[in-house]
Design a protein around this nucleic acid. Structure first.
Length: 425
RNA sequence: GUGGCUAUGGUGUAACGGCAGCACGAGAGAUUGUGGAUCUCUCGGAACGGGUUCGAUUCCCGUUAGCCACCCCA
């Protein structure tokens, strides 16, 4: 029988990868707490309209990349492709739009997109993100970007850039679209069918194209010209704030995003060592999303970063830190008959909060020590005939190779002492 | 979703239309109560399904998966 396989584009994680993830996640949580953000957890599965109604009809995430199906009640459900819309849904459903003045949330978890997998692109991937609801002041943007900056720094990443732009307010949008259409219309004959279609349906996305021809055409475009004075002024204040706080950024007048709900500030973090999938995170302001999902008009801003890509970026820069694992103590069994007593000793250590594993098979002591070393244990506990006669427990320090005998009355305390003093851990 | 390249023990690899080798690894052992070395032995493999052929791991097709690019984005 052929082995059962995983769905392509998902990944199993084993140690030491899991240790690396734990580190990434706990650091992210810590940084979020530093800025007053608290965790929110929403379902992985949502009604389809949570996304179709918010991300934009023309957004590729909705049209092509969502896992969607009917459940047993005939409901159209989807696996969440991103984190913001579900949070807004929950925010409105709980009535927070009407009560809370300022809400800061972070989230951490899997997202799903039915795309062809590639390095840096998985069908199930993981994002860390934050959302800040309740005010439209430029300082809010600065605060969120400062968090982002600190997060990337805390992770030890280098070689990244925050690219930033403004899309203007919702009122500016028609003028922006018209501007792009007008500028590109004379060259429409040189565009591919798909691009011409996009020009009418979703003109902003044109600016994202990698087609060299099109890029040349777009290089001259700067839609910020047609934005309202207020939108421009707001953006300048955001940039000034970033400078004051010390967040590095690169202004990119052609930066747009793939989701329709963004207004004003948008940004993207790219990493130089990642090939085609070089965006490690992105975000922006979405002042109209809460209202469009049935809530009161609450302005908000947020971002998400892709954890798999962060890991790739860390690897690309060889910044992967050594991760240490393994349990602290190994309890050996000199003879097979002593395996059971080893279990008892290990239990006594665990009861005191000391991580321990014990020999289970009764192999040669030599093998047991080899195993203990390989799995990163620091101490080995031995208690056999000799020890029993002398009423002691032998404890061997694997790093110094020294072994001593401890009176059996207080051996657990002694083991703890050795673990604490031995440095590391 | 589109196009291209790839698929050999757990890992990394070699050769070949005719018995699939090597290294690492794992297990056992070398005067049986002490680890990273050495030596000996052992374990373990052609992704899946079809076709061509006397014979296919090798050639062809399909599927799946991985990678690269597109597309998109995290």
């Amino acid at each position: 029988m052929s082995p059962v396989k995983a769905l392509g584009g998902t990944s199993d994680l084993f140690p030491p990868e899991t240790l690396l993830w734990q580190r990434l996640e706990s650091q992210a949580r810590r940084v979020a707490h530093l800025y007053g953000f608290e965790e929110i957890r929403t379902p992985l599965i949502e009604m389809e309209e949570v996304f179709t109604g918010s991300l934009g009809e023309a957004a590729e995430i909705v049209t092509k990349q969502m896992y969607r199906f009917e459940d047993r009640g005939g409901r159209a459900v989807t696996l969440r492709p991103e984190g913001t819309a579900p949070i807004v849904r929950a925010f409105v459903e709980k009535g927070l739009d009407k009560t809370a003045s300022l809400s800061r949330f972070y989230y951490l978890g899997p997202m799903f997109r039915a795309e062809r997998p590639q390095a840096g692109r998985r069908r199930q991937f993981h994002q860390f993100g934050v959302e800040l609801f309740g005010a439209s002041a430029p300082a809010q943007d600065v605060e969120v970007l400062a968090l982002l900056n600190r997060l990337l720094t805390t992770w030890g990443l280098t070689g990244w850039t925050i690219r930033i732009n403004t899309l203007g307010s919702a009122a500016d949008r028609p003028r922006v679209l018209e501007y792009i259409r007008e500028q590109l219309a004379p060259h429409a004959s040189r565009l591919k069918l798909e691009e011409r279609e996009r020009l009418t349906k979703n003109p902003l996305r044109i600016l994202d194209s990698k087609e060299p021809e099109l890029q040349k055409l777009c290089a001259r475009l700067d839609f910020t010209e047609v934005l309202s004075a207020g939108a421009k002024e707001r953006f300048e204040q955001v940039l000034a704030g970033l400078k004051a706080v010390g967040v590095p950024f690169t202004r990119d007048p052609r930066l747009v995003r793939g989701l329709d709900y963004y207004t004003d500030t948008v940004f993207e973090i790219v990493h130089s060592g990642l090939g085609a999938q070089d965006a490690i995170g992105g975000g922006g302001r979405y002042d109209n999303l809460v209202r469009s999902m049935g809530g009161v008009a609450v302005p908000a801003i947020g971002f998400a970063v892709g954890l798999e890509r962060i890991l790739l970026a860390l690897e690309a820069g060889k910044e992967t830190p050594a991760v240490s694992g393994g349990t602290a103590v190994f309890v050996a069994a000199v003879t097979p008959a002593e395996v059971r007593e080893g279990l008892v000793l290990a239990e006594r250590l665990r009861a005191e909060g000391i991580a321990a594993t014990a020999e289970l098979e009764g192999r040669a002591l030599k093998r047991q020590l080899e195993q203990a070393v390989k799995s990163g244990c620091r101490l080995v506990v031995i208690r056999s005939e000799n020890e029993r006669a002398k009423k002691v427990v032998s404890v061997k320090d694997l790093s110094t190779r020294e072994q001593k005998e401890i009176p059996e009355a207080d051996w657990v305390a002694e083991v703890r002492g050795m673990l604490n003093s031995g440095g590391g851990a």
